[in-house]
Simulated scan of single mutants.
Amino acid sequence: MSSDYTGDTVLIAYDGSEQAKGAIRYAGRFLSTKNAYILTAWEPIHRQAARAAGVGGIATADVSAVDDAEGEDPAYTEAVAICREGVAQARDHGFNTEPYLVESSTAVWTAIVDAATELDVSMILVGTRALSGWRSLMQTSTADSIVKHAGRPVFIVPPMEGDD
């Protein structure tokens, strides 16, 4: 995807969470670059169902029954809405934005790192839940994986006071 952006560009990972919204607010205050791609990664509903069945061992219903009238995947429809929300949030905080929707076939962090490489962005911005204690030992965070594999600067914004 080409853009008419000049200068540095940031890739903002946006999933609609309060942490992602907080990261955009914080970045709008402190980053000098104002060109941004708003990335929303999504997973097709049939893959979500298969993953859930594999993890929980529960049989799932025919997922074609949940597709909307146009045959569009409801997960895709939701991802488009989330990405549009992220674009609006970023614009409200001074960014020149372009949406970037990516289908995730593996881990979300992989989709983010691959998109950053494809778009050749200067930096990746992510919010994090900042897990601690036992939860942090049991779960590798998306932000941690991005830092380890991105090969470029990563701006991680932890939950701020008032974020849920």
Rank of each mutant, 00 (worst) to 15 (best):
S64Q: 10
I124D: 02
H149P: 01
G7F: 12
P44H: 10
D4T: 10
T97F: 11
G57P: 11
G162Y: 03
G56Q: 06
I124Y: 06
A75K: 01
W134C: 06
D144H: 13
A75R: 01
T40R: 07
A150L: 08
T97I: 10
S105Q: 14
A107T: 06
E85P: 06
A130C: 10
R129Q: 14
A107S: 09
D68T: 03
W134A: 08
A50K: 07
T97D: 09
Y76W: 06
F30N: 03
A81W: 01
T9P: 00
E85N: 14
P44R: 05
Y100K: 05
A88L: 15
D164K: 13
V66L: 02
D68V: 05
E78R: 01
E70K: 05
D15G: 11
D8N: 10
A41N: 08
S104P: 03
E103T: 00
M138R: 14
G28Y: 08
D15C: 13
E72R: 14
A36N: 09
G133F: 09
E72K: 10
A27W: 06
E118R: 15
A27R: 04
I156P: 04
A65G: 15
I12L: 05
D73A: 00
K34G: 07
T33R: 01
R29L: 10
L125C: 09
D67F: 07
G57A: 13
T60W: 13
T106K: 07
Y76H: 09
D73E: 01
Y26M: 14
T33W: 06
L125R: 05
K21D: 03
Q139H: 14
L31P: 11
P99M: 00
D92S: 15
A111Y: 07
E18A: 15
E118I: 11
G162K: 14
E85I: 02
R25G: 03
G71K: 03
D62H: 01
A81L: 02
T6W: 00
T9Q: 00
